[in-house]
Simulated assay, not measured.
Amino acid sequence: MNAADVMSSPAVSVNPGTTVRAASAMLGDHGFSALPVVDDEGRLVGIVSGADLLLAGMSPETANSPVARVMRGSVISAPVTATPAELTATMLSQRLRCLPIVAEGQVLVGVVSRSDLLRILTPVDAVLGARVEAALRAYSGGPRWTVSVREGEVSVSGPFSDQAERKVVEALVRTVPGVRGTQLAS
């Protein structure tokens, strides 16, 4: 497994002429911590983070200025062949929230975030179980049932008020993306 298997691609990026206002809107809309800055050939030339944009301020003059004025030109990136361990080590040692992934010639091909790395460390069934538990807690106001998951098959056990509640719980569990089947036990 390498960066190509972990990264989000294609990467959302801006060019040096993108306005600070537009870059700020993209960060907000996508929930990213930073945006790679690429030239017309797609080569990585910088990065602009939310912190960079906040430090620049949002005066009318700054909002319409190009990202090139506030971006950092010195960018830490990783090759598409980097292993998850190498990506993690780089991100932790450099205190990065995202890491641009480049191919030959510094061409941006993707971005790896902390959540991308966490996803490969967390078994799919564990993630699915946490999502089902969250949905059930939202419904019941607290933890009432025990959830277990094996290969997408969800088992919910615990007390049910009546048959109607069993049906509601079963329907709720089935709304969670990734659930392949449900089983309820009292």
Rank of each mutant, 00 (worst) to 15 (best):
E133Q: 13
P84I: 01
S148N: 09
S93Q: 12
V179G: 03
E151K: 13
T81L: 11
S77N: 11
R180V: 09
A134F: 01
V80P: 02
A164V: 14
P84K: 04
E104M: 08
T83C: 01
A82W: 03
A85L: 15
V124W: 11
G110D: 07
T83Q: 02
G50V: 12
S157E: 15
S155N: 12
L92S: 13
V109Y: 04
E165T: 11
R97L: 11
Y139R: 12
T182L: 07
V70K: 05
M58W: 11
L108V: 09
V179Q: 02
V109H: 00
E61P: 08
S115V: 13
S115F: 12
A51W: 14
L172S: 06
T175M: 00
E104Y: 10
R144T: 05
S155V: 14
G46T: 07
A130D: 04
L121F: 14
S74C: 10
L44C: 06
G73L: 11
T90R: 02
E61M: 14
R137N: 15
R69Y: 06
V80Q: 11
I120A: 05
V156D: 05
A103M: 08
V147T: 11
G129F: 00
G46F: 04
A185K: 14
A103N: 12
L87M: 10
V147G: 07
L121T: 13
V67W: 01
A89E: 14
D162T: 04
P159L: 15
V45M: 09
A171M: 01
P79F: 12
L172T: 06
S140Q: 12
M91A: 07
P123D: 11
L184C: 08
S155G: 10
G181Y: 03
A89H: 13
P177K: 07
V45D: 09
R166C: 10
E86C: 01
G73I: 05
I47P: 01
V45E: 11
